[in-house]
């Protein structure tokens, strides 16, 4: 909307919007700030916004005491692995639905979506049982599988909406030019859909990174990702604010940065294309 707006009004809007924005962001800002304080300063009354002794000690302590790197590594492997696996399964499926639609395509898409609605707690015991049976409990591969499955509908949906925007004639041209199915997907479709695939990957890494039901229930020590690492601060260590803040900052920083890149795709992915 390129509408003329009076300067006083714009100033007022700016003030209100920034106040609200900063208020909403405050808990994150406060967490990051506190992570650089000493424990005593972290609980000081009145709260210290400046003039505290800047220290990195909390980060060192957190790493040393709970081996942060191992949890981080688990998070990276699990979020990355489940997304990658999901993309590999979803690209061919989305190709089929976008370019060779049949009468059942819509039903299949909706059905896939419906599996996403299955309440996790309803199948907690069976999944744990199967995990025990197959020795997947507290393994990264087990979590990669589960997170891939719970996010697969979203991946398929997002790719489907992106693929739909690619004109079918270009794929037909590739076919006329002698490309087989594999070449058509590899040399023509995939490069054209790179932006869409990238946003899909981004959003799914975020979702997998933050998933906190299966990661809490299916891991113990060796495969636990950052969600579980933070949960271990629930008590009584959570009262060490500076440490909690340092641990929290480390857990959310990577994904905050990724998240800011993906805000536009977020809408599309999370509403299954219903809002663009």
């Amino acid at each position: 909307m390129a509408r003329a707006v009076s300067t006083p009004r714009k100033i007022a809007t700016t003030a209100v919007a920034w106040t609200i924005g900063l208020l909403i962001f405050f808990p994150i800002y406060w967490t990051i700030l506190t992570s650089f304080k000493t424990e005593a300063q972290a609980i000081a009354n009145p709260p210290l916004f400046w003039g505290f002794d800047f220290t990195l000690e909390n980060y060192a302590v957190v790493q040393e005491r709970s081996n942060y790197m191992r949890f981080l590594w688990n998070s990276v492997i699990i979020a990355g692995g489940s997304t990658l696996l999901g993309i590999l399964v979803a690209v061919p499926a989305a190709w089929s639905m976008a370019f060779v639609p049949s009468r059942r395509t819509k039903d299949i898409l909706l059905w896939m979506l419906s599996t996403k609605m299955l309440p996790a707690v309803g199948v907690l015991y069976p999944i744990s049982l199967l995990f025990v049976q197959f020795g997947l409990l507290d393994t990264r591969i087990g979590l990669i599988l589960v997170l891939m499955l719970i996010n697969l509908p979203i991946i398929v949906w997002m790719l489907y909406t992106y693929f739909k925007e690619i004109p079918g004639e270009i794929l037909e041209a590739a076919r006329m030019d002698g490309a087989g199915l594999r070449q058509e997907i590899l040399y023509v479709l995939t490069p054209m859909a790179i932006p869409g695939i990238a946003s899909t990957v981004l959003l799914n890494v975020i979702l997998a990174w933050n998933e906190a039901f299966w990661t809490l229930n299916l891991t113990a020590a060796s495969a636990a990702p950052l969600t579980a690492f933070i949960a271990s601060y629930s008590s009584p260590e959570g009262l060490f604010y500076a440490k909690l803040s340092a641990a929290s900052t480390m857990a959310i920083a990577p994904i905050l940065i990724l998240g800011w890149f993906s805000q536009k795709q977020l809408v599309r992915g999370l509403t299954f294309g219903a809002v663009k």
Binding site: I170, A173, A174, M176, V188, M192
Partner: peptide
């Protein structure tokens, strides 16, 4: 025969060039 095996070439309405 699949399109690739027919030895024909096609020019499409939208040109269908590979944009990348």
């Amino acid at each position: 025969a699949p399109p690739a095996r027919r030895g024909l070439a096609m020019v499409f309405q939208s040109y269908a060039l590979y944009p990348h």
